[in-house]
């Protein structure tokens, strides 16, 4: 290992920023893949894999990727919910690799909802 210079500390911090924002729960956008049994059977784990590769490629450090169970609309799986901070969550249905990439680029990164794959804006009322 080469001896560190002050600027090297900053580059390590930058490299680790995603790891740390995840542990601190800080995020600009939150992507939830519905990984119920129905979702998994329809290919949701592949959607998850695509998203994880995208996060790595784009070096997107302030996006959280989580899972949840069945969203109740099993016929429309695989599904995911995208929630950009300060905006209502959007549910996307019938996902495949290409759609996932498109939604990630357009909605998650650029903030523009992909209308054609979206089921609805907003979530069910809880309680």
């Amino acid at each position: 290992m080469v001896k560190l210079k002050p600027e090297d500390l900053a580059s390590i911090r930058e490299r680790m920023a995603r790891t740390m924002s995840l542990r601190e729960g800080k995020a600009r956008a939150h992507v939830t893949v519905h990984l119920g049994t129905c979702g998994i059977a329809a290919g949701a784990r592949n959607v998850m894999r695509v998203l994880m590769d995208l996060l790595e490629q784009r070096d997107a450090e302030d996006i959280l990727l989580t899972t949840s169970g069945c969203a109740g609309l099993c016929s429309c799986e695989p599904m995911m919910t995208v929630e950009v901070k300060g905006q209502a969550p959007v549910k996307y249905i019938h996902l495949d690799e290409a759609k996932t990439v498109q939604i990630f680029e357009s909605h998650v990164l650029a903030g523009k909802i992909v209308q054609e794959y979206a089921l609805a804006v907003g979530s069910e009322r809880v309680g």
Binding site: L9, I12, R13, R15, M16, T19, E24
Partner: peptide
């Protein structure tokens, strides 16, 4: 609870050694 104590990169990521610098 936020870092792995056996990884110096984890400490640096949480502003470790920034004060020394």
């Amino acid at each position: 609870g936020l870092i792995d104590p056996e990884k110096i990169e984890d400490y640096i990521a949480r502003d470790g050694y920034a004060a020394l610098s």
